[in-house]
Computed example of a mutant assay.
Amino acid sequence: MEQQAQTSLKSKLQSIKSKPAAKKKNQIGYGIVLLALIIAFGVFLANIKTMLAIRWMIGIALGFVLQRSRFCFTAATRDPFLTGSTSLLRAVIVAILVALIGFSAIQYSAFSAGKPVPGNISPVGIHTLLGGIIFGIGAVIAGGCASGTLMRVGEAYMMNLLALVFFIIGSAFGAYHFGWWKANVIKNSPAVFLPDVLGWPLAFFGSILALFGLYYLALWWDYRKAE
Rank of each mutant, 00 (worst) to 15 (best):
L129W: 06
V124I: 14
I96K: 02
F173Q: 00
N184M: 06
L211S: 03
L66F: 14
T50R: 08
I39D: 01
A53D: 02
R55T: 10
G179R: 09
L45N: 04
C145I: 08
K182F: 02
A36N: 07
M158Q: 15
N188I: 08
I16Q: 02
I169E: 08
L198A: 10
D79T: 10
L202T: 13
T77E: 00
I101F: 11
G170M: 12
I38C: 12
A46I: 00
F111M: 07
Q27P: 00
A105K: 05
L13I: 14
V192A: 05
L89G: 02
A139F: 09
A22K: 09
W181R: 00
P116E: 00
V140G: 01
Y215Q: 11
L198S: 06
S112C: 09
S15C: 00
Y30L: 14
I38A: 07
F44G: 02
L130M: 10
W180P: 01
I93V: 06
A75Q: 03
A36M: 13
S147R: 02
I93S: 00
L198C: 10
Y176Q: 11
I169C: 13
F73G: 04
S69R: 07
K225M: 13
L82A: 11
K23T: 13
D222P: 05
F166H: 01
T128K: 07
G179I: 06
W181Q: 08
S11W: 03
F71E: 05
Y108M: 12
V98H: 03
W221E: 02
L202K: 06
Q3E: 04
I126T: 10
K182I: 00
A203F: 14
A172H: 13
T7P: 00
M158I: 15
G119V: 02
R78I: 12
A156K: 02
T7M: 14
A172P: 03
Y108W: 15
N160D: 03
L161K: 14
F111T: 01
Q6L: 12
W220V: 01
L211R: 07
R78T: 07
I58F: 08
I96E: 03
T50C: 03
P195F: 14
L100N: 10
I141T: 05
G59L: 12
A5H: 14
N26M: 03
N120G: 05
I141K: 08
F44Y: 08
Q14W: 09
R68M: 12
G154Q: 05
T50M: 04
G84I: 07
W181S: 09
G31M: 04
Y176A: 14
F167C: 04
E155G: 10
A21V: 10
S122W: 11
F64W: 06
T50F: 08
